[in-house]
Design a binder for these strands. Structure first.
Lengths: 112, 112
DNA sequence: CAAATAGTCAAGCGAATACTTAATTATTAT
DNA sequence: ATAATAATTAAGTATTCGCTTGACTATTTG
């Protein structure tokens, strides 16, 4: 698993969630699968815009979709969310252990 | 704490981390505090650009900064990261419990 | 004090985003 | 078969974003 691919993966997750509308779509879909139209309704955006949001979410692995007839069902995909969780876990140790000794570091650091 | 303020807070965290350079800056600073110049060095960007990144990170609560003489020290701030963690935790239950019954839901859903 | 260093601010530029409208396709309902 | 519904695609537009350059303000340092 190359470092670069991983980076772009998590990048797409952050980018997807950086948008308020998409975040709310993820939340909506976390309750139960929804169609693209259903996802569009609460916001004052066109269906076309909603389709584009769903595509962004799908590429990032935050949702899966499945076409059933003329409708596309959108549902959460654990992949994107666990990627986010993993990223967070990997870094948590880092800064948590650091914070314990932070004041100490600050006292030593100013060597300029 | 109003719902809207919370939303914009997490929004700024996602937006901040959506950028590769800023993500790496957070990691660098997780090791130990660093000056703005030190943060700029590994990337081929100007100091001015680095300043802007630090400002974005600071507004999102991912880092704190402290001016010491002509130098500005940048260090991790637990706030932004725990905001992210909290957002994740709040949603995890939702989709995790959902996923157990997901195949069932899919079997029931197609009512069109 | 003069020169070098670290950072900051403002303006501007190109690329990426989030949107729209309009045209098109596929499916379901009458 | 016709009409309505759901989604998709393409193209264009306005805004936001990451970045640069250039001017300016501290602070060290020689």
């Amino acid at each position: 698993m190359s470092r670069h691919r991983k980076d772009t993966a998590i990048e797409s997750v952050f980018q997807a969630l950086a948008d308020r509308t998409r975040r709310q779509m993820v939340e909506r879909v976390s309750q139960s699968p929804a169609t693209v139209s259903e996802l569009a309704r609460p916001f004052s955006i066109t269906l076309a815009a909603a389709v584009q949001h769903v595509q962004v979410l799908e590429r990032s692995g935050l949702v899966r979709t499945e076409k059933q007839g003329r409708v596309r069902l959108v549902m959460v995909d654990p992949a994107g969310l666990s990627a986010l969780r993993q990223w967070l876990d990997e870094r948590r140790n880092l800064w948590e252990t650091r914070l314990d000794g932070l004041s100490t570091i600050l006292r030593e650091k100013p060597k300029r």
